[in-house]
């Protein structure tokens, strides 16, 4: 029974937690905002002064910014596309009864437990390296010229590595969703004359739409801030070919020691992330309504 009284008491009791969380969020945000309006370079300590919008002007007119923006969107979109489609197909496969199902399901999740840095390094050195990598050896075996993935197709390679990490997550969520589909619906559709393809399109896909929405929303949050994979493989290069916004901010504030510029970039990134979030919720958020 939620009386007026007990509701007030409940509010009082959760307020410390809410205030703590709010402070936790607000303090770094306000500091970033504050730094973004300062001329603050680590090479010139003690010379901080208020500069107004200069940091923003420099960041937003930097050609690297537009490259990074494009790369960020490509990276997020590419990984989402691969993991959602691949995850659906894998889930369909794993949903079939076969021998050793349990073991295979656990194996499929394994990549998710590998640290991003480690998996990126493994891919870089053991697979994609044109001299020592397996792909290089394979190319030799076929009598072809080895392909230097990370310098010739840096962004695509990173998209591939990140997709490999996130595929298990998508597969797992979609598999559970698939298993909750009422078998009688599929049988009814079969009796109604729907082919396997029609059953997938008319029954399974609508049933999966909510799970796909969850996968897209959660992954987008993490994919917007991909960093480690870029740092250890291409370091954003060649040029800015694989620099995303997160990496650009890192370059700005720590490699160029420009904390003010980096902070301005951070604020821009927050705004862009929110635009993406609003856009996503508009597009697919209705799938989450019961």
């Amino acid at each position: 029974m939620a009386t007026q009284h007990s509701r007030a008491a409940a509010r009082l009791m959760i307020s410390p937690a809410v205030l703590l969380l709010l402070g936790w969020m607000i303090v770094p945000l306000v500091m970033t905002l504050y730094f973004s309006f300062l001329r603050y370079n680590l090479l010139m300590p003690g010379m901080e002064e208020f500069t107004g919008w200069t940091n923003y002007r420099f960041f937003l007119t930097d050609p690297a910014f537009f490259d990074a923006l494009g790369n960020t969107l490509l990276l997020v979109g590419g990984v989402l596309l691969i993991t959602v489609i691949g995850g659906t197909l894998l889930a369909l496969l794993l949903d079939q009864p076969f021998w050793g199902q349990g073991v295979v399901r656990i194996m499929v999740i394994a990549p998710f437990f590998v640290m991003p840095t480690v998996s990126a390094l493994v891919w870089k050195n053991m697979f994609m390296n044109p001299v020592n990598g397996l792909f290089g050896h394979f190319a030799h075996f076929l009598g072809l010229e080895p392909y230097d993935f990370l310098s010739q197709a840096p962004l695509a390679s990173i998209i591939f590595i990140v997709s490999w990490q996130w595929l298990p997550f998508a597969t797992l969520i979609l598999l559970t969703a698939l298993q909750s589909l009422d078998q009688e619906q599929l049988e009814a559709a079969e009796m109604d004359g729907a082919s396997a393809l029609s059953r997938f399109y008319y029954i399974m896909v609508p049933h999966l739409s909510r799970a796909i929405t969850v996968v897209i929303l959660i992954q987008t949050i993490f994919l917007l801030s991909i960093f480690a994979e870029i740092l250890v493989t291409t370091a954003g290069g060649p040029g800015t070919a694989s620099t995303n916004l997160t990496y650009l901010i890192y370059v700005q504030s720590l490699l160029q020691f420009d904390v003010g510029g980096g902070s301005a970039g951070g604020v821009v990134a927050i705004i862009l992330a929110n635009i993406v979030a609003i856009f996503l919720m508009r597009m697919i958020g209705k799938n989450l309504d019961a």
Partner: peptide, 21 residues
């Protein structure tokens, strides 16, 4: 024959309606 080819229609205990249609 596949179920659809037999020309029979079935009504299930759980109704098995398509919830999103």
């Amino acid at each position: 024959q596949a179920p659809a080819q037999r020309g029979l229609a079935m009504v299930f205990q759980s109704y098995a309606l398509y919830p999103h249609m």
